[in-house]
């Protein structure tokens, strides 16, 4: 009686590739577990060497903060996997923040930034911590004037954004350009995907199968960046409403963005509140199917993993640590 009209099943192929420039550029047979070589960037802020260099100086420059003491790198420290090793960040006046500092690795590929996805791109994100009283406590009204008074920066901004003035917009664009260079290096897992059978051990190989299979991690940590860019409540003991603040839907209460697992062995402690000190604790959390069951994602349930299976999963996660990016600290413009 009812007609079911198929809405263009053909469009599937097109839709699958729509997520971003880098994805579009991939050949159809590209390994979904390997990072696309091309890093996406908005047309309005195409990366150039000058922009990246300028952004790097700004990223490491504590003068971006109200106290002239906190830089982006204070919390996103390259020596600590671009995070800070703390359960939650330490902000202005040494006050702890409400959430843990995520790595900035591969954030170029994130469709939404922050644990709750409240910023849409890196340009918008960069002004968040600067202007936040709790984080860098900078007066966004005067920061451009402050930097314009530094001769070395005037020259750099001119070279990077000719014709545009020094403003919060160009500051944010430059920082975003630098962040787009912070991408994961080749990990043993990648070498194994490319055919080097000995690049990871048998335990890690079994761990990858568990990850995609019995342990169901791949339902959310999917693809080369090990994230679906989605939001889930995984049943942590936490009062934080998370994504609910952006999308007031019941299922989003306590939901957070699936973080990348690239370099995850370097970025303890884990979760939006840093409540787990080790990957072993994280695996135990999933094995028992989470703790708080309110709005728990239907993809989280007790797994019944054996001792060996837990170890295999851990060994697999460790193979995601890429070759470190060599970071030469910039001499800050004066």
């Amino acid at each position: 009686m009812k007609h079911l009209r198929l809405c263009m099943a053909v469009v599937f192929g097109l839709c699958a590739g729509r997520a971003g420039a880098a994805v579009d550029a991939r050949p159809a047979d590209a390994d979904p577990w390997l990072r696309p070589a091309q890093v996406p960037a908005p047309e309005s802020n195409a990366p150039t060497a000058e922009r990246v260099e300028l952004g790097k100086a700004l990223f490491f420059d504590p003068r971006l903060s109200g106290s002239n003491w906190i830089s982006c790198a204070s919390c996103h420290n390259p020596a600590l996997g671009w995070s800070d090793g703390l359960p939650t960040g330490m902000g202005h006046g040494m006050k702890p923040l409400g959430r843990g500092t995520p790595t900035i690795l591969n954030t170029a590929y994130n469709p939404l930034q922050m644990w709750d996805g409240r910023f849409k791109d890196l340009e918008q994100q960069a002004l968040g911590p600067m202007g936040s009283g709790a984080e860098m406590n900078q007066d966004l009204g005067s920061v451009a004037t402050e930097f314009a008074a530094i001769a070395g920066y005037r020259a750099r901004f001119d070279a990077a954004y000719p014709g545009e003035s020094i403003s919060t917009t160009t500051i944010a664009k430059a920082i975003a350009s630098f962040e787009r260079t912070v991408v994961s290096g080749e990990a043993p897992f990648d070498r194994w995907r490319r055919g080097d059978a000995a690049a990871i051990g048998a335990s890690a190989q079994r761990g990858f199968e568990l990850f995609k299979g019995k342990a169901e991690c791949g339902l959310c940590h999917m693809g080369w960046n090990f994230t679906d860019n989605g939001f889930h409540n995984i049943g942590l003991n936490s009062e934080d409403p998370g994504r609910y603040a952006q999308k007031p839907l019941k299922s989003m209460k306590g939901a957070f963005k699936t973080p990348t697992l690239r370099d995850v062995a370097l970025t303890a402690p884990y979760m939006h509140n840093g409540m787990y000190a080790s990957l072993e604790e994280v695996i135990e959390h999933y094995d028992r199917g989470g703790d708080l069951k309110d709005n728990l994602s239907p993809s989280i349930r007790p797994l019944g993993l054996t001792v060996v299976e837990k170890r295999d999963l851990l060994e697999f996660l460790k193979t995601l640590t890429g070759a470190p990016m060599l970071v030469v600290l910039p001499q800050l413009p004066q």
Partner: peptide
């Protein structure tokens, strides 16, 4: 349809 994290229309 919802497939590959996209709507078919």
């Amino acid at each position: 349809m919802q497939k590959d994290k996209a709507f078919s229309a």
